[in-house]
Design a protein around this nucleic acid. Sequence first.
DNA 1: CGTAAATTTGAATGGATTCAAACGTGGTGG
DNA 2: CCACCACGTTTGAATCCATTCAAATTTACG
Lengths: 238, 238
Amino acid sequence: MRQKAVCTDPEWTRRADCVHCAIRNRVLFADLPPDELDDALIVIDDQVLSHNRAIYREGEEGGALFTIRRGMVKLVRHLPNGEERIVRLLNVADALGLEAVIGSSYKHTAIAVGEIEICRIPLEVIRALGLSHPELSIQLMIRWQNGLDCADRALVEFSTGTAEARVARLLLHLCAEGVGAGCPRIGRQDMGSMLGITTETASRVMADFKRRGIVGDLEPDGRWYCHQEQLASIAGQA
Amino acid sequence: MRQKAVCTDPEWTRRADCVHCAIRNRVLFADLPPDELDDALIVIDDQVLSHNRAIYREGEEGGALFTIRRGMVKLVRHLPNGEERIVRLLNVADALGLEAVIGSSYKHTAIAVGEIEICRIPLEVIRALGLSHPELSIQLMIRWQNGLDCADRALVEFSTGTAEARVARLLLHLCAEGVGAGCPRIGRQDMGSMLGITTETASRVMADFKRRGIVGDLEPDGRWYCHQEQLASIAGQA
DNA sequence: CGTAAATTTGAATGGATTCAAACGTGGTGG
DNA sequence: CCACCACGTTTGAATCCATTCAAATTTACG
């Protein structure tokens, strides 16, 4: 019988169970037959990370790629002068570390925003499956294109126009991406780093939005309520 | 004997000759055996476009991807309010329109910056070659990753810091990318649209650089001379 | 050679930054 | 349990940088 190795690293909470994964049809292995998947399974790990923990760091040799099962991840890149900029925010079912597939080292530092759960997929799995399954290549390409869309968006929506418009667009984006009602909270520092504005400016705009009743705290689950129509109108200008 | 179809579209200047292509080892088909390539060749076209001509437009259905053989191409995306932003500048050997491969419509409008020469590679070629040649998939992935690097760079280097620093970084980028000495000239409008600043600001910064002798006209071939050390020092701050 | 387009320059305005300080909040240790 | 510290957020005031609008000037092109 096929063996399912016990996870040896105490940091990994449990082995992944891809075949029964709740988001299976949204992830990399969507097109693969279950039994092939089971073969690969023995080396795929599932991990829970707490807020601000790094998944990998810029420049590290990429031995694996990852899929987000729960929570959000920020991809950060550093400028020569030391200041950092958030390049992208990733959500459930997004993949990260794709550059590993083409033998490149990681291009960003990936950090958990809030508690997250991720699957770690070693390169060997991709290599082994990839040769016999062109579908996997397609899925990888779709992820790459997704990353590109995201990056272009960051440029066009989050780095253009007034601070107000940028914050509004970011909130709308979070509303749309985030599962469930409202939008996940995000620190002023991260906001600024995403939008190319200072923490203080981000704070000022958010404080102003709250005063105007455009956003507000949604107590039970620690999310934000957003008045999407008003945000859309603010996002539209410039 | 294998037939090489005559090009019927008068706009296409001549059929591509991939096997003897000067940049063959830098492009998509680098890893393919020459004879396979010859089979594919019959549907690959080679085209010369003049300044400001569009290769494809945002939202169009993607029937082909392209490789740049000569010149530069800008990828443009439009904001809801009508203003446009340059997302990326592409150079010789870069690929564009990759999104076509996964069946997506084009995400940008691609426009020639100066006179360019490109190869148009219909999707069918990729599909036909792709199944039997995983190497091509790898090459495609490398292009995608390249695009991502480019996009991230646009965000981190070209949309962060003072106008001076941004212009300096753009000039350095052009110096590095552009073939030969100096850097290709670029309009103030395009500069602004790439850096997220106004045309006037771009002009002011460039005029100032010229007065300080950091950049200057290189008469013979219509390029710019750049004092790279000084530019690097300016680019470093903020 | 004349017109359109791109570039340069000026002056006034406005928005974001900077630097500083106050405020609230969560966690730690006494 | 409370005091205390660290950290993120909020707010203020002055400054600075980029924008805006306008006009002059140069360049490109038919």
